[in-house]
Amino acid sequence: MDLLERLITFFAENGYEAVFMALLLCGAGLPLPEDITLVAGGVIAGLGYANVHIMLAVTMVGVLVGDAGMFLLGHHYGTHILQWKPIAWLMPPRRYVKVQDQFARYGNRMMFFARFLPGMRTAIYTTAGATHRVGFWRFLLLDGAAALISVPIWVYLGYFGANRREWLGMWIQRGQNSLWLVAGVMLLVALLLWWRQRRRRSDAA
């Protein structure tokens, strides 16, 4: 909650522009949790420093611009951006080749669910652009559809919990745990699909 309090103070002093810029940094892969940033934006609206509906619009645009920026970096700079340390650590060359095939098969689903995977969004969006298997407008549509679910939840959670910090902290923790649960389930499904595919290949051989 220390980070949340610092963000609340910073956003209250600097307004919508600060929230927008912070979300761009989140999209760029900096170690600033997007969910906490969104909650902080909602809190300052709940405290009367901003209008919650304008805040929702600002955060939606900030999230989408940040995501689109990483996608376009991958699209235009391809393998060069994949050498960036945070991306290279998550997406080494061997995995990148496999991911290209996965985007061809499951591109729509990967783009949608990536928004709910903390710590993975930047690598997935950049790789999506680099593979050239996912068009920009399809990416933006799928990412926007997912953001329409996640962004209002976090912003309005902050808004309604602005004066109830213990309650807010409890729901932030529950929300983050739910995201990690979703990530775990998706990883398990991916492993099962990989195992089935490998078994089919071995049977065919």
Rank of each mutant, 00 (worst) to 15 (best):
L193M: 15
F10Y: 13
V182N: 00
E34V: 15
I172T: 06
A50N: 11
T131Q: 12
L193R: 15
R164S: 07
P86T: 02
A45R: 03
Q173T: 09
Q197D: 13
A12C: 10
T127K: 06
I153G: 10
L73A: 14
M186Q: 02
V151G: 09
Q102Y: 12
I87G: 04
A147M: 03
P31F: 00
L32F: 11
Y77C: 13
A28N: 06
L179V: 03
N177A: 13
M186R: 00
N51A: 09
I124K: 03
W89Q: 13
V182R: 03
V134F: 03
Y156V: 05
D143R: 07
V43L: 07
Y156S: 01
Y96E: 14
L141W: 02
L23I: 08
P118C: 08
Y159R: 04
Y77T: 10
V52C: 03
V52D: 01
G175C: 06
A12E: 13
G119F: 04
D143G: 09
C26Q: 09
I124M: 12
D35T: 07
R199W: 10
E34H: 14
R138I: 04
G29T: 04
L141V: 08
L191H: 15
F10A: 13
T37E: 08
E5T: 14
R133Y: 06
A145Y: 01
D2W: 07
N163T: 06
Y159N: 01
V182M: 15
G41A: 05
V189L: 13
R133G: 03
V182I: 15
V19F: 00
P33Y: 05
H53I: 08
A130N: 10
L141N: 03
G27E: 02
L73W: 05
V43C: 10
W154D: 10
R198S: 09
A18P: 08
R133E: 11
H53V: 04
F11T: 06
A45C: 08
W84T: 11
H80R: 15
R95A: 14
N177S: 08
Q102M: 14
F71Y: 15
I124N: 02
L38P: 00
L157M: 12
